[in-house]
Nucleic acid binder design. Structure first.
Lengths: 131, 131
DNA sequence: TTCTTATTGAAAATCATTTTCATTAGGATT
DNA sequence: AATCCTAATGAAAATGATTTTCAATAAGAA
C-alpha cells in the first residue's frame, strides 16, 4: 500500500500550495523550504507533487519554457498561459462557458484542473502591436 | 533576415504534416523521412517545427509522457489529450462553445491552435470504471 | 558565375525530471 | 514502550527530449 503515511514533507508541500495564489515551480517550493528551515529534498517535492496531481488535488501547468508549475485546485477558474512571457493568469470561468463546454465534451471524463488556455497575455499583446 | 529561404527540409516537414491526420512526434517525422529517402536531420525537424509553431501554422501538443506532438492548423477543432494513454483525439468545436469562449477570453490574444483539453478518453474511462 | 549569409546537421551540451537504492521514520502490533 | 515491517525520503546517478554550437552546405541575389 502506497501514499498513506502522514509526513512532514507531504504536509509542507501541500501547505505551501495552499498558502499562496501564484503557480510555483518545484525549485520555488524548494527554495521556500530552505528559507523556512524545512528539511526536504527536491526529489521528494517532485514525487509528492506528482502524487497530488494523480489524486486530482493539484494541477500541473507547463509553460513554454518547459517548466512545470503547480496550483492547488480551488474553484472554477481556468489558466491563461502566456506563450511569450510564460506568465500564468487565473481567470474565472463564466457560467455560459461552463455550460457550453459541458455540452461539447459530453462523453469525455475531463479533468478540469488540467484545462489551460495558451495564448498571449494583455501585456505582451500591447508590446507586440507597438512594434 | 531569417526563415525566408525555401528548402527541401522545410517543404518535407510541412508536407508530412499536411498529408496526415494524426499528431506525429519529431521522431515519427524523422522515421518517415528515412523511409522515404529524404535527407534531413532530426535537429532540423525540431528547428523547422518550432518555426512553424512560432508562425502559427502548426500547433504543438504535449502529452503526459512529455512528448511533443505536432498538428497542422486546419479548421475549428480542439484536442482532447488523454492523460492515461496519451492519445490525442480531434473534436470539432461547437458554435455555442466558440461564442461563449470568445466572450470569456475577450481582451486576450488566444492562439486557438494551442487550446487543448486534458482529461481521460472514453476508452480509458471504461477501463477505469470496470476496475 | 560569384558572393553573401541563411540553413543544415552531427556532436555536444543542457536541464528538468525520474530512477535507484541505502537510510530513515510512520504507525501497526505486540 | 519496544519491536517490526515497509512506506517514504533524499543524494547521486541516469534519462531523454530538446537546444546549442559551429563548420559545411546551398538559396538566391547581384
Amino acid at each position: 500500500m502506497t501514499n498513506h503515511r502522514k509526513t512532514k514533507q507531504k504536509e509542507y508541500v501541500l501547505g505551501n500550495l495552499l498558502n499562496r495564489f501564484d503557480h510555483p515551480t518545484v525549485s520555488q517550493i524548494y527554495d521556500d523550504a530552505l528559507k523556512e528551515g524545512v528539511k526536504i529534498g527536491e526529489v521528494s517535492i517532485y514525487r509528492i507533487l506528482n502524487n497530488l496531481v494523480e489524486e486530482g488535488k493539484v494541477c500541473k501547468i507547463v509553460t513554454k519554457d518547459n517548466l512545470a508549475h503547480f496550483d492547488y485546485v480551488r474553484e472554477n477558474h481556468f489558466h491563461l498561459v502566456c506563450n511569450i512571457c510564460n506568465k500564468i493568469v487565473d481567470k474565472p470561468i463564466t457560467e455560459e462557458f461552463d455550460k457550453s463546454f459541458s455540452n461539447m465534451v459530453k462523453g469525455f471524463d475531463i479533468l478540469k484542473q488540467d484545462v489551460n488556455f495558451y495564448g498571449v497575455c494583455e501585456d505582451c499583446a500591447k508590446k507586440r502591436t507597438s512594434n
